[in-house]
Design a protein around this nucleic acid. Sequence first.
DNA 1: ATTTGATTTAGAATAATTCTAAACTATGTT
DNA 2: AACATAGTTTAGAATTATTCTAAATCAAAT
Lengths: 145, 145
Amino acid sequence: MKSLKQMDRGALSDALDHAGQRTTPQREMVFSVLLDERNHPTADEVYTRTKSRMPTISMATVYNCLEALVTCGLVKQVNIEREPTRYCPNLSPHAHFHCRETGRVYDVPVPEGMMKDLVKVLPGNYSADSVELVFRGHLEKGKTK
Amino acid sequence: MKSLKQMDRGALSDALDHAGQRTTPQREMVFSVLLDERNHPTADEVYTRTKSRMPTISMATVYNCLEALVTCGLVKQVNIEREPTRYCPNLSPHAHFHCRETGRVYDVPVPEGMMKDLVKVLPGNYSADSVELVFRGHLEKGKTK
DNA sequence: ATTTGATTTAGAATAATTCTAAACTATGTT
DNA sequence: AACATAGTTTAGAATTATTCTAAATCAAAT
């Protein structure tokens, strides 16, 4: 898909607007790239993909756009073991699985409410606004996905 | 505490030995530093603390020692949001809490078996050997710890 | 004693990310 | 419409944690 669906375009400008930021062609393109292939790309990968559709974009702009998208809440950063930051447009609560063999990261759906329940292990004076759950291991032979 | 307790010294050389590595004064000192003040120091902080007791040690050696300790299983790396890697000698299953205000990281004890139970959310073909659970937020006024 | 291999060390190299300052773009105001 | 203002993009420099390199040191084993 080469461009943003109307729905996503709307969500994007709403979210940017709400954060006091402008909707620009670069931001639309980067967002589109993220929605298009949701395999947790790094900034560098996002740069390569975006550049193929918008050859004049710079690495700095890709970082700027990603930051804007994170700030306005449409994208989440995924950090695994000090590897380069990956970007994920999946906003529903989920965990991550990191395959040691391929290095790939997979979203893992979790039962409704589970992420919230986890917070209950915290002592009373700890107030958490985010919960991250990351598994590491390998995929059994068979499925690739 | 300036030096390793006999118990820890034994655990250290056993573990190093088991991994085919030698017990050296630098490794003992770095391990001692980690056991001494368990506030998830970064390599840089470990370097500073170790240097105060062993002024000739180098940064490279600190990294080497930390890597040796991680490899032989006595220490775990804790990575939060692409910040510098922290080192933690707490081997019992636990979660982490990252305070956005102070940047500090706290160990959070979890109910027996909980970390293992979390693995059950994974699809059958996902085989996890490690589970990481990180909360981010802030500490309510009152206790500092 | 000598060889062998591991370890330590200082400093160079790497790599992801952030910063800087100039050019560009869009928006709102008269 | 012209202009001021503020936000955005851009290339390249700077930063920073970490890894690499190669020489020096050390320790164990022949």
